[in-house]
Amino acid sequence: MAGDRLRGRGAASNETGRFEGLVREAFADDWDLPVEDSLIETEVRLEQPRSAISRNSSPDLPFDRSVNPYRGCEHGCVYCYARPSHAYLNLSPGVDFETRLLARPGIGAVLDRELRAKSYRPGPMAIGTNTDPYQPVEAKYQVMREVLQVLAAFNHPLDITSRGTLIERDIDLLAPMAAKGLVSVGISITTLDAGLARRMEPRAPAPARRLQMIRRLSEAGIPVRLMLAPVIPGLTDHELEAVLGAAKEAGAEHASWILLRLPREVSPLFQDWLSRCAPGRAAKIMARLGDLHGGKDYDPAFGKRFRGEGLWSRLIRDRFRTATQRLGLNETRLQLRTDLFSVPFSKGDQLGLF
């Protein structure tokens, strides 16, 4: 899996998942046969969801529930921390993660059933915490649209994280929810350098297009948070103030940042990318990450995994705080409402008189 076949993909390898008993390896067998050299196409399989809401109790996450419309992500961001989740599907966190996707149509009906449970108590629903709900295949499968329609019917609060332009399609649903205080959107921008973004995030919208998304959502009355993520020390950290300023000018009201995370298979994939696309910076970047994570590529400990620790972490934090104060970002705290939650009538319900 090398050469032209991988144009437009983030990973350059397809190492076997860690739960597999056998290892796949390509090799030349010296047979004079035609070699398949066409581009690797995206393959989508359908999954019948048995549950919709995923729960977590992580102390450093601001939400305790989420919905994932897709598994895998066609955007192909080489640094994506969600890549290791593909190993649970007996697929590779490498090329498979961005080419062999699972869509979950029908999840809206499952979500509707779970929200109707008498024991259910509303709280902000996070969407886009694992893979992007507005990745390109959403145009065909519309699973996110399905989820959004259910949440709107229940007046359920939600927080969306995305870098996909298809979110603009759903402004007709998001704007009325925002007017009720039910929704916030985080748009992720890593760099303003279009060339660098194309190499790191090959099928994600260009930085300028994401700024346009912020503007359009803001103009529709939808509160937008810039997610400066990931901050890559030695590669993108020098752009911190510029990205914040551009997002503010586009209409963002809030901002947050997360350090580059390299769990499990992501570290070798990212280091391979560095050796190909930024060889002169590779040693500096990995050394800086080691400084941030106690000598390791990554420390998954709660309280450390998102920001690291030490001098460089404090420097990024202080620069971020100074810039957001100067720009007037994060001046207010966005609190999504839960008091409007109500269970709508379903087909066959008897209407009440009062």
Rank of each mutant, 00 (worst) to 15 (best):
Tyr88Asp: 15
Phe19Tyr: 15
Gly106Lys: 00
Thr338Pro: 03
Gly10Val: 05
Ile171Asn: 06
Leu311Glu: 13
Arg50Phe: 02
Gly251Ser: 04
Glu74Cys: 13
Asn14Trp: 09
Lys347Thr: 15
Lys296Phe: 04
Pro268Met: 03
Cys80Trp: 03
Arg319Ser: 03
Gly221Asn: 02
Val231His: 04
Gly106Ile: 01
Leu151Gln: 02
Leu292Trp: 03
Val243Cys: 06
Ala28Val: 04
Thr338Arg: 15
His293Pro: 04
Asp318Trp: 12
Arg198Ile: 14
Gly123His: 13
Val183Gly: 04
Ala152Thr: 00
Ala28Gln: 06
Phe63Gln: 00
Ala282Val: 11
Val224Trp: 11
Arg18Cys: 07
Pro93Gln: 03
Thr236Cys: 11
Glu249Ser: 11
Cys77Lys: 12
Thr129Leu: 01
Glu168Thr: 09
His293Gly: 11
Ala103Val: 08
Arg83Trp: 04
Gln335Lys: 15
Leu262Cys: 01
Ser85Phe: 07
Thr42Glu: 06
Pro62Glu: 02
Glu114Lys: 12
Gln350Cys: 13
Ile167His: 09
Ala82Arg: 02
Ser188Asp: 01
Leu174Ala: 12
Gln212Trp: 07
Phe341Tyr: 09
Phe354Thr: 14
Ile189Asn: 02
Arg314Pro: 00
Leu192His: 08
Leu22Asn: 04
Thr99Pro: 06
Lys304Val: 15
Trp31Glu: 15
Asp30Pro: 01
Leu336His: 02
Arg71Tyr: 07
Gly308Ile: 10
Gly76Pro: 05
Gly328Ser: 10
Phe97Thr: 14
Leu22Lys: 13
Leu39Thr: 12
Arg7Ala: 12
Leu22Trp: 15
Ala109Ile: 04
His254Ile: 10
Leu211Phe: 09
Glu138Asp: 08
Ile40Glu: 09
Pro230Ile: 01
Pro300Arg: 02
Ala255Phe: 13
Ala179Tyr: 03
His293Phe: 15
Gln149Asp: 07
Ile214Leu: 10
Met144Ala: 10
Gly76Tyr: 07
Val23Ile: 14
Ala242Lys: 13
Ala152Arg: 13
Thr324Gly: 08
Pro93His: 01
Gly294Arg: 08
Leu351Ile: 09
Arg307Asn: 13
Asp32Gly: 09
Val231Glu: 10
Leu228Asn: 02
Asp291Val: 02
Asp37Gly: 15
Ser184Ile: 05
Trp257Phe: 15
Arg337Asp: 11
Leu173Lys: 06
Gly3Glu: 08
Val78Tyr: 08
Ser57Leu: 14
Gly181Cys: 05
Ile160Cys: 00
Leu211His: 07
Met177Val: 11
Phe19Cys: 10
Ala103Ser: 12
Gln149Val: 08
Asp193Glu: 03
Lys296Met: 12
Phe154Gln: 03
Arg65Thr: 00
Arg50Ile: 00
Arg65Ser: 02
Arg163Phe: 04
Ala242Tyr: 01
Ala287Leu: 08
Pro62Leu: 05
Gly251His: 06
Ala179Ile: 05
Gly328Glu: 12
Thr322Arg: 13
Val137Tyr: 11
Asp37Phe: 14
Asp96Gln: 06
Ile40Asp: 04
Ala2Leu: 06
Pro207Met: 06
Tyr88Met: 15
His86Gly: 06
